[in-house]
Simulated assay, not measured.
Amino acid sequence: MIEKPAEPKLDSLTLEQQIDLQIVTSGPISVATYMGLCLTHPSKGYYRAADPLGASGDFITAPEISQMFGELIGFWLVNLWQQMSEPKSFTLLELGPGRGTLMADILRVACRAPGFRDALKLRLFETSPPLMAEQQARLEVYEPRWLQDFESFENGPVLVIANEFFDALPIRQFIRKIDGWHERQVGLVDGKRAFGLSPTPIPASAMPEAVANAEIDTMLEVSFAGAEVLTRLAKAIAKQGGSLLAIDYGYGTTQTGDTLQGVRRHAYADVLEAPGETDISAHVDFGALGNVARAAGLATQPLATQGQFLTRLGIGERAAALTRANPAAAADIRTAHDRLVGQDQMGTLFKVFCAHSPGLAPAGFTA
């Protein structure tokens, strides 16, 4: 009797091979499933493998550009804490804290406020072991703890910071055809990954009202993962008081279009190539997140651009103060300022969303 050759162990396969095997075995997968595997596969996902930030990584976030970004959010948090009558205990949670740079800048400023440090319970949500190690190194003095879910918080208000977090959550894509909407999927064509459509139509009545009259071949992106995360956090904030501040690239009302993109070594890359080695993201539908927050009983502020938000918080004055303290760094400070608030840079592309307990008046959202 001839024995069949042993099947290769899954762990011995690359992520690329595992994804292809799953497609061959079970059929095409949704964009959300593909994105989730690429980014958060338990051992080979993009955020599991290495530190993606900085010049040696794939992208640079605002906290890595200048300390001013985090410092101003620190002032913002203290103002909100004071509006809540300086509670003696509160949770400060950051989603996707990166290297811990943002939170370190935030707390360096915020903990100058009498009572803030004593009341603080720092919580972090992170999936990358290398980044968790960096967060521990930078934030150890604040005794951080890492959360696995958003189901329970200790007594007191909950303040949440999410900088470039929601854009990395999986999205599903749907394309309008004559017989209805079809979900976009990832399959194999001649052995290579390619986009295709599910043959099963979804009635137009099941789609958001904003796209009811969409033209043929229109694409709609929906982040059920983002809605689920915000639902859980909003329920906690509605019950205990507090606020969520999210900064990301996105749009204020539900719209159509393909925003799925890959970035590798600071350049755009094909999202279907090099899974696990390419950052994949999509623009955030802040209109949808606002609907989720309000349904949970929270109030929301008018969506602001990052430039508007930071300018209203005083980034110009902060840049001037840093320049006076270190004249030799004036050019670098000006470059960082312009990159954070410039209309042709991050200032317009990135939006700032805030949902909070009714009665609070978060700074930075009105002139």
Results as ranks from 00 to 15, higher is better:
294 R>T: 15
184 R>V: 02
113 A>V: 10
230 L>H: 05
145 R>L: 14
181 W>E: 00
75 F>S: 12
5 P>N: 04
207 M>V: 13
219 M>Y: 05
281 S>H: 02
12 S>A: 05
104 A>N: 11
363 A>T: 06
232 R>E: 15
236 A>C: 12
261 Q>N: 05
27 G>K: 06
187 G>I: 13
111 C>K: 04
64 E>P: 08
262 G>V: 07
139 L>E: 07
8 P>E: 03
201 P>Q: 08
270 D>V: 02
77 L>A: 07
3 E>A: 05
93 L>K: 00
266 H>I: 02
30 S>N: 13
259 T>D: 07
96 G>M: 10
260 L>V: 10
207 M>A: 13
119 A>E: 03
143 E>D: 14
121 K>G: 12
231 T>I: 08
263 V>K: 14
247 I>C: 11
222 V>L: 07
241 G>Q: 00
151 E>T: 12
23 I>M: 01
274 A>D: 15
220 L>F: 15
88 K>E: 10
237 I>Q: 05
306 Q>C: 10
92 L>V: 04
145 R>N: 14
288 A>H: 14
164 E>I: 05
227 A>G: 13
64 E>N: 11
201 P>N: 01
295 A>Q: 12
218 T>Y: 09
30 S>G: 15
250 G>V: 11
278 T>H: 10
69 F>S: 00
27 G>T: 11
316 G>A: 10
131 L>E: 11
262 G>Q: 10
241 G>D: 05
126 E>Y: 02
89 S>T: 01
105 D>H: 11
133 A>K: 12
299 A>D: 03
18 Q>F: 05
135 Q>H: 07
98 G>Q: 10
273 E>I: 14
222 V>C: 06
208 P>R: 03
229 V>P: 08
349 L>F: 12
261 Q>G: 00
